[in-house]
Design a protein around this nucleic acid. Structure first.
Lengths: 202, 202
DNA sequence: TGCATTCTAGAATAATTAATCTAATAATCC
DNA sequence: GGATTATTAGATTAATTATTCTAGAATGCA
């Protein structure tokens, strides 16, 4: 079957995703991507087809690896509002708080509605966020509050990531996250009115 | 003193700002800007120096004209939380809700920390928003709540504008704005405990 | 009338870009 | 060993880019 791939696909895609996240798709050149990944352009074109193909692969790797993993960890089936708050705060602390934001949020702005090579990754991320946030809010505040506040949290999420690229101090953003979550916690129903841990509405 | 400028600077800058807002700085070419403004490249270079100069002028015009005017109208010295809510909602309704977001928010993402030709416009806008939001919140909720919630509102503002470029339905964004403002209004102090209209903390 | 300035229209430049191709080398399987 | 595939390194192409320049016509002021 011929020679095996010599480079590690995962680490190449991680390096590429990071380069795209820092500088954007349009701004970065194939020469830059050679430096960032350690590959030579021939290998890039052989492995990923073209620049857009590399971007698609890198964004997919970022979403299914990095983003999804974080959502599982902080907003999984038994996550609380406090866990969710930690998810928001963690992007504002080292090592994530490097001032370049999130590749998905950046791609929403760069590509807009016709999301080009970012369409699938953006859609996947939005669905992941909606599911996870809605799950936590439903368990903690009930279905009504969840249907009210899920989009609110998604807006906060992308707002924080947008501003994390602006130079506004991370501590101020963190405080605003804490304020938002304090308001959500204040909406928790009286524990005595919840007979069991889990509620299902029919 | 020679021939006068034949084109209307304001409408040229508005057209340029709109083109930059829709497609971004890097994506749009001088040829595109010729079409958008009706000018020929020679006139552009003569009047604005280079592409970055045109962008700076267009962003300045957008900020000092469009953005500042809206802030004055919806978040002026006697504006209420309801007025502020209308500011947020108005970007989600025609004719502003065209799916291309805001040139300032887009520039935060495109240029990042070293904001290049967008630095001044971004800084001015952030200061305008902070002042205006803080003013309304101080009058309506007091100084403490204002210092808590001003950054929260700025985050919401940029979050809404980021997502307005994503294809997420404007009605959902509008509902999440309404939820946030309902929560703010719920923090209004009891009117009977406010003896006079203005409170100053010493 | 002259001088300065802006306009149009387009040619020319110099750099950068994504992408393709070549040719040689290296690894892997049958 | 032979077939197959990947990698490297670099040349090449073809397009696009921002910018400059030319040349002439239009406009305003002294």
């Amino acid at each position: 079957m011929g020679r095996r791939r010599a480079f590690d696909r995962d680490s190449v895609l991680m390096a590429a995703a990071n380069a795209f996240r820092m500088h954007g798709y349009r701004e970065i050149s194939i020469a830059d991507l050679e430096k960032a990944t350690g590959l030579v352009s021939g290998s890039i074109y052989n492995a990923f087809g073209d620049k857009a193909g590399l971007f698609r692969a890198a964004l997919g790797h970022y979403v299914h690896g990095f983003v999804a993993e974080r959502i599982r960890r902080f907003a999984g089936a038994d996550a609380t509002l406090d866990d969710l708050e930690r998810l928001f705060l963690s992007v504002l602390e080292p090592p994530l708080a490097d001032g370049f934001g999130c590749l998905v949020t950046n791609s929403i702005i760069e590509f807009g509605r016709e999301a080009g090579p970012a369409a699938e990754g953006i859609a996947t991320t939005m669905a992941l966020l909606d599911d996870a946030f809605r799950g936590v809010l439903t368990r903690e505040l009930g279905a009504d509050a969840a249907s009210r506040s899920t989009v609110q949290l998604i807006t906060l999420y992308h707002g924080v990531l947008t501003l994390s690229r602006s130079g506004l101090p991370m501590e101020e953003l963190a405080r605003s996250v804490q304020v938002s979550f304090a308001q959500l916690r204040a909406q928790r129903p009286d524990p005595s009115s919840l007979p069991s841990r889990k509620r299902t509405t029919t």
